[in-house]
Design a protein around this nucleic acid. Sequence first.
RNA 1: GGCGCCAUCGCCAAGCGGUAAGGCACGGGUCUGCAAAACCCUUAUCCCCGGUUCGAUUCCGGGUGGCGCCUCCA
Length: 464
Amino acid sequence: MQIYNTMTRTKEELVPQTPGRIAMYACGPTVYNFFHIGNARPFIVFDTMRRYLEYIGYRVTYVQNFTDIDDKMIRRANEEGVTVQELADRFIAEYYKDADALGVRRATVNPRATEHIGEIIEIVRTLVEKGHAYPTRSGDVYFSVRSFPGYGKLSGQPVEALESGARIDPSEEKRDPLDFALWKAEKPGEPSWDSPWGKGRPGWHIECSAMSMSLLGGTFDIHAGGQDLIFPHHENEIAQSEAATGQPFARYWMHNGYININNQKMSKSLGNFFTVRDIAGKFDLEAVRLFLLSAQYRNPINFSAELLEQAASGLERLRTARERLLDALAAAGGETPEDAAFAERIEEFVKGFRAAMDDDLNTADALGVLFEFARALNVFVSEPRGRTVLESALKRWNELTDVLGICVAAKEEELPQEALSLLEERAKARESRDWARADSIREQLRELGFAVEDSKAGAKLKRI
RNA sequence: GGCGCCAUCGCCAAGCGGUAAGGCACGGGUCUGCAAAACCCUUAUCCCCGGUUCGAUUCCGGGUGGCGCCUCCA
């Protein structure tokens, strides 16, 4: 498979460090709030990457962290009058609610920064020993950017260019404006941990280095995150990790594009965001997932209710195709003359899907293949078919939709007795050609939230 | 100022050297008691101007328009 590596700015063949295995790290949420649809994109995209890697046979170790200690956590905890830990516990639970509903599979490990303070301190200590970091009088420890020659290699920014834009806070005791905090000395009312430099807490960047390296090793395959993390977060991770270990950090860097609102980046600071929780009340989150996969992950994607409705309609089409296939399977008989040719077509769809995904996770293209598959299926099952070919069609269909995490088998819903008896009554009315009665029952069912679809096999109820 | 991305049908979105996938919406039709679902048919020369090439939406240069990062941010 080819993936676009931000480091080299080209598509490269993905060659894992250990054959057959992929070690992958994705930056997860800071758990001080519900996450928004913009945050959802990397969760879904990289979850899909993980699913696809597993589908093509890799054993994947997928790590996605929770940042549970930083400035925002502290501020929010103080506002709410709870401890940082309580805040984190609460929003980690909320994260799982939304992520589960979006079809994001649980990562192999979801480490919390505060569970890795020991490793963090070890890395900082090593960096100080090697002369890449220095403590200050007040107990902060800074990374010395100029001590790491490769600084700027991910973002493509020459150090000189960065210097002019660097922030200087007079209260900080940096030797160089470019330097960034590895360890922050304790301030009143903030959580802190003991360290060789006194009580304090980790800086943001070092958390990801510690969690990724302790779970995946000093060199691992893929590091992923949003484009806004390229600089400074990922640049800093590289600097501190490689300076500490002397070995390459992540081998491939994947970055997803933004979600825009009216062509502008959705972000918490701009206030133009929708949380997944907000949307969950109005839309099927599986449609949200489909929407986010309807564009290639590196391209920006505009968000609007209209677009979500379009995605929901598309999803309905995929679900219907699967249901028709299921019905056909229930009525399947012996082999028909067309079965063999269709079995071959199925494999063509699989190939097409894989070719799309192999090209830097082109989910938009892959979805196109899925829709073509759906049409072919709809045509094919309009006549009785053999069980064998239908079974293999269903197997393939499930495999491909599972990779994208959409169109998952609908839970068998208990239909209300009232609806079922109405449906039965309508069938009788239709038998006696009492169309007015039949139509009025259909209207009653609509009010109950069901659409009626007639077919030769009988009428079916469908949630609307 | 530095680094980078984008511009394809009404809306979304693939393709990226050989004359444009797919979805949504729209129109016509088949099926249906009527619908719904499904199916069939119809709908684009790819922002502009140059260049390279037998041939460019696809490569190069220049415009125009939009967006992002440059130490809060997925």
